Amino acid sequence: MACPENMFFLIVLFMSGVLACFGQRDLNTTMPDRLDVLTGSCMQIPCSFDIPGENKYKLNTTIQTSGVWIKEIPQFGYHPDNVIFNSSETVNRYQGKITGNMSQKNCTTVFFNVATSYTNRYFFRIESQPFRATDPDKSVYIVVRDLPSSPIITVSGEVKEGTSVSFNCSAVAPCPEHPPELTWTLPTQFTTENQLQENPDQTKSVLSTVTFTPSYLHHEKNITCTAVYPVGTSNKTAEHAMMLNVSFSPKDTLASISPADPVSVGSCVNLTCSSTANPPVTTFTWFMISGGNLTQNSPVGTVCANQATAGEEPEEPAEDQSEEIHYGDIDVSKLRPKETPAAAQDRVQGQESAYAEVNVTRRGAQEPPLNNLDGLYAQVDKRGAC
């Protein structure tokens, strides 16, 4: 049986009305997507609203406007048990109050003595004359925990030896009336600055900034930020530890010679150099200076005591002279063809010298003195360039 034309017209009108109803929101609310709160504490829900279109003229700010919070689903009339708070009522399932000014479209609400059963999704509704509406598309998810979330430590810039650095510790403050107290544990002296700040989603957090000057001794040491939340007559604590990664120039440079016993002219010795740095040392370069001239440049620490030049008359040793002592000079400077003043300052601060004693024993009176080992140097390059 075919539908009459007038029936088709009514169906089209009905469907278009349904689409218009579901396509437009009578109330737009702004609130955080999620809040993590503590059992037994309070929680503040930052909330604001706007009434779009022609409906904005229906809100009469001269009369009392009630705020309603509904859990789990936005339907108001069909599930009255889901209404947990109505500001027009003196007794509510959740103890709380709207602290915002509803006439200024501020619906910020505080709930007290929250329990783990409060974990759920919540929608906001306005009850006024003649305007009533719920925002079905925006809600806040409340998570109630027995223990607080750990604070977050961040650092801006490089942690470098001898340079002042600041670390930030942030902890959420779901109950701004009783914010957490932040304390630091560091392996050195420091200064702190604390403040309560507002986040982009209008939630609150406590920010603590600590400033200190690290040294190489602080490398791989822990710093800890501890957040203490007052809950009733007790406290709940959470902390975050971070290991320091301090950049520093070579330290504890050590040179050694093998064999360590006195060696004879013509024999060879192995020179060993070690150093601690961050980033680690990647290149050790040995070089020897004789008479002011560079005579050897090698990454291998092996030095041989040469004989006298052919045709040269050997020098007769003194009666009380049985050995000579020579030193290996370990130079930890960073050599460059051209360096900036800042680089030169880093080079001076990073220099170290260590000495390795070489005892050279003559085998006979006709053997010449070992006079071509004026200085042994080791260049330590952290970047791998000789």
Rank of each mutant, 00 (worst) to 15 (best):
W69I: 13
C304D: 01
M102I: 14
S256M: 09
N55E: 05
F212K: 00
L38M: 10
V358I: 13
T188R: 03
V210S: 11
D36S: 12
F124S: 03
A227Y: 04
V155T: 03
C42V: 00
V348M: 11
P230N: 05
K382M: 13
V159C: 07
K221G: 06
N371V: 00
T30A: 14
S41K: 06
P151N: 05
V300I: 14
T309Q: 10
A260W: 05
E158T: 15
D36K: 08
N222A: 08
P337L: 03
I126H: 01
L38C: 01
T154D: 10
A310Q: 05
G67F: 08
M242F: 14
V265D: 02
S103D: 05
V68Q: 01
T192Q: 01
L27S: 01
Q351Y: 11
P176K: 05
K105E: 10
D33L: 12
Y229C: 03
S170K: 10
C21N: 03
V231D: 02
P130Q: 04
S128T: 05
F123N: 00
N82W: 11
R363C: 08
E324P: 01
E313T: 11
R25P: 00
M242A: 12
Q44M: 15
T272R: 12
E72C: 07
P214Q: 06
L10H: 09
N6M: 06
D26E: 09
A342W: 10
P314T: 04
F284M: 03
W184I: 02
Q321K: 10
T211G: 03
V83A: 00
L335C: 00
L244N: 04
I142C: 03
S150D: 13
K382T: 15
Q64H: 07
H219R: 06
M43T: 15
T209A: 01
I153S: 02
M31H: 07
D346A: 12
T285Q: 11
D329F: 13
T61P: 02
V281N: 04
T183M: 05
C169R: 01
C304H: 04
S139W: 14
F287Y: 15
P46L: 07
R93Q: 14
Q44L: 14
F22H: 04
N199H: 05
S41F: 07
V358R: 09
V246R: 05
Q379M: 13
A343T: 12
F22D: 03
S66Q: 06
N235F: 15
T90P: 00
L19Q: 04
S353R: 13
G266R: 09
P74G: 02
Y377L: 14
R362S: 02
S205Y: 09
V144N: 01
Y122V: 02
D329Q: 06
R145M: 09
N113R: 08
G364S: 14
N306E: 13
K138Q: 12
Y118C: 01
A378N: 14
N6R: 09
V144E: 03
C42W: 13
V210D: 03
F8C: 12
T108N: 06
V348K: 08
H79Y: 15
F123A: 00
T99E: 13
D320E: 14
H218L: 13
E54Q: 13
N92S: 07
F112Y: 12
A343D: 11
S256K: 11
D26T: 06
A354T: 15
A2M: 07
N222G: 01
W69L: 07
R383N: 14
L38P: 01
V206R: 06
K105A: 15
K334F: 09
E177Y: 11
E72V: 11
V12Q: 10
S66K: 06
E193R: 14
T163Y: 06
